[in-house]
């Protein structure tokens, strides 16, 4: 009795494994071109470019925000991002960009207007680092918002999560 029960459980687990394996295979094969495109994206192979990121201040940042065209990228660590960030900004610490290529970046046309920011002030190197890396990746319009998060937050401009 004990033996058959063991066998039965074993069989159930084997079939469960097969279900997962076969379904995953279908999923991956059905999306193989998408997976290929993302994993082998140009993100990993940098180009060289002499361009510099232009530094912008709070007023310019707000103007670009209102324009609605620019993508804000938060260069701080994900914990800080989760606690609050500029509305609509995505999280991308510069270290992360070296390891992998986030989808938001893969899909972003090289001409898009990008604004990086971090903690602000002189001790904030992250957004400058990130801006440099994005320029190396071939982005043409990268702005470094120097005032960063503190300036934006204290100005009472739109943030996420909303308070």
């Amino acid at each position: 009795m004990q033996e058959t029960k063991k066998k039965e459980t074993f069989k159930i687990l084997i079939v469960a494994g097969l279900i997962v394996f076969l379904s995953s295979a279908i999923g991956v094969l059905a999306n193989i071109s998408l997976v290929n495109r993302i994993i082998n994206s140009e993100c990993i192979t940098p180009t060289t470019s002499p361009r510099e990121a232009s530094q912008i201040d709070l007023a310019e940042a707000k103007k670009k925000f209102d324009g609605g065209e620019a993508l804000f990228i938060d260069a701080r660590c994900p914990d800080e991002y989760n606690q609050g960030h500029i509305k609509g900004a995505i999280s991308l610490p510069p270290d992360k960009l070296e390891l992998e290529c986030p989808l938001a970046i893969v899909q972003l046309p090289r001409e898009s207007e990008i604004i990086t920011y971090c903690e602000g002030g002189t001790d904030c190197q992250l957004s400058t680092d990130l801006a440099k890396k994005l320029i190396v990746l071939g982005y043409l319009n990268v702005n470094d918002f120097f005032g960063g998060w503190p300036a934006w937050e204290s100005a009472g401009y739109p943030i996420d999560p909303e308070n």
Partner: peptide
């Protein structure tokens, strides 16, 4: 969700819905 490395999360994201559907 910020848990899996990016490449793995791509594979996970395309495979998972099919596992859900079939089971």
């Amino acid at each position: 969700y910020n848990i899996l490395p990016f490449t793995l999360s791509v594979v996970f994201a395309v495979a998972l819905p099919w596992v859900e559907l079939i089971s």
